[in-house]
Amino acid sequence: MSVSIEPGFAAAPVLRDVLPPRRERGRVMLFIYRHPTIAVGGLLLGLMVLIAIFAPFLHTVDPTALAPARRTRAPNAQYWFGSDMLGRDIYSRVLYGARVSLLVGFLVAAVSSLVGLTIGLCAGFIRILDTVMMRVMDGLMSIPSILLAIAFMALIGASVQNVVIAISVAEIPRVARLVRGVVLSLREQAYVEAAIASGTSTFKIIWRHILPNTLAPIIVQATFICASAMLAEATLSFIGAGTPPTTPSWGNIMAEGRALWQVKPFIVFFPAVFLSITVLAVNLLGDGLRDALDPRLAKRI
């Protein structure tokens, strides 16, 4: 990409650069160079989102249509990724499955961030609530998250919405703690103390000073939650306590195919690859965002 200027005519011979010529890049390339993980992660994730949105137009068939007479076919011209135990087209199921995984990931990230943010702000600002809420959060965090989600799913039954709730409940305390920590450290800052002293309303303080400062860590945290929620959805479905089996999700396809992984590995293989790539993409994105948005955090992990 380097552009060297060849002089057409010369009054004097061009001096050799003391420093090597500065490479000029487009802004895009510069961004990629500075934040390669964001670029790669974002690109892969974008691809998955496109696949999810345009699944019906990508040469798919009805992902729930049965054909028991043509079951467990290896990948071929008709079934690109093969067919499962009920003769459903795995290619179509995997593409449509992207919708569920991404939806669960994004929704859990959004729900737990919002609820966690609210709880964290309340706890950080309202002294009476702080102890109670944080004890409850501590209690919730003491229950290993998958166990909590499994117990919840057993309670409220299988549906995508319930998967989102179950996983969110386990993630909320983490966000709440993070936010509370930020709030407490910000409260000690001189400018916040000044604002409090000058009688600015609590709401205004939160809006002006606190929120903007919590945004960066929350966004970073939300990306990681998104990734772990997608894995949790797959795990729940794998155990049989996740998305209802009528909905094609990567977890479900793998759960159904796992009985046959020795003989028909392709049933598990394709959703596993898609899931891993997507989670990897989100993780890379998270890493990159952390480095870019919050250099202090970057040192931590």
Binding site: T235, M254, L275, S276, L280, D287
Partner: peptide, 9 residues
């Protein structure tokens, strides 16, 4: 990073 992204099973 891969370790984070592949399901345990």
């Amino acid at each position: 990073t891969a370790g984070f992204s592949v399901p345990v099973f």
